[in-house]
Design a protein around this nucleic acid. Structure first.
Lengths: 145, 145
DNA sequence: CTCTGTGCAAACACTTTGCAGCTAA
DNA sequence: TTAGCTGCAAAGTGTTTGCACAGAG
């Protein structure tokens, strides 16, 4: 799972970002990188509590957001937003701005027929395939510079 | 926007699914397919209220879920879920089961370097690109048959 | 006429915020 | 010592549920 060099790297990263290295942070980080699925804050909380019985859910939440800010973790695309609906039945792809959360449609023919690997199509029924891009949109880029 | 044939098709679809064709449903449906972005229930509600001043937000919400069930609308991938975190820094793709909401990682080399169309890369800063598949996982498929 | 759909309001789940005490540096 | 972190609790946001009435079939 987390080798000592992983921890060292993590501590170095914290220092570089001006963050303190607290036992809670290390615990949350280790729990996260030790997870294969994509845990929610709650799931992770349950996990961390085994070794850290009185850590609070808020701390886990905040720590995860902090980790995401320094690039030590990611938030799975689109999760946590409000529900969004789509009436467009044609094939199209999404670009999502991480700043303003806007979703921009685009259509790029080559993406329509990307082949699904057999390792997936054999086991699961694929209903929909999309290419999902994340980044910063033109408006937000202007705003930030 | 919505031609009469669109409406006809929609009504036919409702009948087929055993749903009643109510003015509210038609209004919500038309508002949805008349939207280019990916509106949230709230956004759509504001829109529908212009022509239907006393429709309730709940109805919009329920109608959208119903539409999603009969396949007349889609819920944008992953939205509405709780936040999920990802400690895996390597390139990988996600498959999400629409039944149990589980996210399964997979890695398919050809997807790592999919080219971003110039129409996007010229205008936006792309930070992350993922191929997002949605469908039914093996366990849920067994459960449903 | 019957049964589904609607509108309202309360309940819920998850996230964010504010603050006092604690702790890494 | 002191700035930043944690834990608790309260507030906020968005979604779901229960129920009585209205309207589609």
């Amino acid at each position: 799972m987390a080798s000592s060099s992983d921890s060292d790297k993590f501590e170095a990263r914290c220092h570089k970002a001006g963050l303190k290295v607290t036992p809670q942070r290390i615990a949350v980080y280790n729990a996260l990188i030790g997870s294969k699925e994509h845990p929610s804050a709650d799931t992770l909380w349950r996990k961390v509590r085994k070794t850290f019985p009185n850590i609070s859910l808020d701390t886990v939440n905040r720590t995860l957001l902090t980790l995401a800010e320094i690039g030590a973790a990611f938030i799975v695309e689109g999760s946590g937003d409000v529900k969004r609906f789509d009436g467009c039945l044609e094939n199209h792809q999404h670009f999502r701005c991480v700043k303003c959360k806007k979703i921009i449609d685009f259509h790029h023919k080559p993406f329509d027929n990307i082949p699904v690997p057999k390792s997936i199509s054999g086991k699961y029924t694929v209903l929909k395939k999309t290419v999902y891009l994340e980044g910063i949109c033109d408006l937000c880029r202007k705003r930030c510079t």
